[in-house]
């Protein structure tokens, strides 16, 4: 008869919630600890873009999609900020862990590939939403706007932050040095977010640039989010959410497989 003191494997249920929760908390505390850098500074950037673009173009573009240029700009800028921050959270977490060597802390605990995916992505999602919520609240104090459709606002915010958190995990898994991460941020994420239609209505673009915008997944998240505020969309209201949902599903599955195989993590 085994004694109560004899070692036996610890039994976890179908989800190791005792491991998943601390992983999520760690990812959240990484950014909440330096909130001036991760929440306030994106807000300042959003405000600056809003001011300079309304001052530069506000006079020549009085109305866009039925609202003033500043009101048209606001949702796109918030979404850009959410996307960039969701990406930054997961990608920097993985790259820093890899460079400093404490990635083993992620690999040693009894966390399954699905739980790793979930914990990291939820951290990025939380940062995206925190940035978006803070920016929206502060901007609402400074300028008038109303919500046309809460469903689109919330769905786009969650789906887009999740998508960028996933892309951040992919980039973090792939990159081995800070230089490589800087290249992904500078040459992939920044151009995609700048050319996403945040600053202009794609309806008015020349043919070529309209095509560029419509094959850019970032376009769909900004368009849907903006529709939620101003009630006008440049693209199809059915295609946008479907593209986002499909992208989230595919990226989630891909990352789950990569974690299971130990891509660039285990020899």
């Amino acid at each position: 008869m085994p004694s109560a003191l004899s070692p036996s494997p610890r039994r976890l249920g179908s989800i190791n919630s005792l491991g998943l929760w601390p992983l999520y908390l760690k990812e959240v505390r990484r950014f909440s600890k330096v909130a001036t850098q991760t929440i306030v500074s994106p807000l300042v950037t959003t405000l600056l873009y809003l001011v300079i673009f309304s001052l530069a173009l506000g006079r020549s573009l009085p109305q866009l999609g039925g609202v003033s240029y500043a009101q048209f700009l606001m949702p796109g800028l918030i979404m850009m900020s959410m996307a960039q921050n969701a990406f930054a959270n997961t990608s920097s977490s993985l790259v820093i862990s890899k460079v400093q060597g404490n990635i083993v802390d992620l690999l040693m605990p009894p966390l399954s590939a699905a739980e790793l995916t979930l914990g990291l992505a939820a951290g990025g999602l939380s940062r995206g939403l925190a940035v978006g919520f803070t920016s929206a609240v502060i901007l609402r104090i400074l300028m008038p706007f109303s919500v046309h459709d809460w469903l689109f606002v919330l769905f786009s915010a969650v789906a887009a932050s999740l998508m960028l958190a996933f892309i951040g995990i992919l980039a973090g898994l792939w990159a081995e040095k800070f230089d490589q991460m800087a290249a992904v941020t500078n040459f992939v994420i920044t151009p995609l977010s700048f050319l996403s239609g945040a600053f202009y209505s794609t309806d008015r673009l020349p043919e070529f640039w309209r095509h560029v915008a419509h094959v850019n997944p970032f376009f769909y998240m900004i368009d849907g989010f903006r529709y939620g505020f101003i009630g006008h969309a440049d693209g199809s209201l059915l295609a946008g959410p479907s593209v986002l949902a499909a992208a989230d599903l595919l990226l989630g599955l891909l990352i789950w497989r990569l974690f299971a195989k130990g891509y660039k993590l285990r020899p």
Binding site: L61, T190, F194, L195, L205, W209
Partner: peptide
């Protein structure tokens, strides 16, 4: 990457966006 090419690309993007956002309006300053 972070010091030379990245900022040059951002400046290019800002210019491009201003041009595209202004459309055919011949915005002046």
């Amino acid at each position: 990457i972070d010091g030379l090419l990245g900022p040059a690309l951002v400046n290019l993007l800002l210019m491009l966006i201003l041009k595209l956002a202004a459309g055919g309006q011949n915005a002046r300053a």
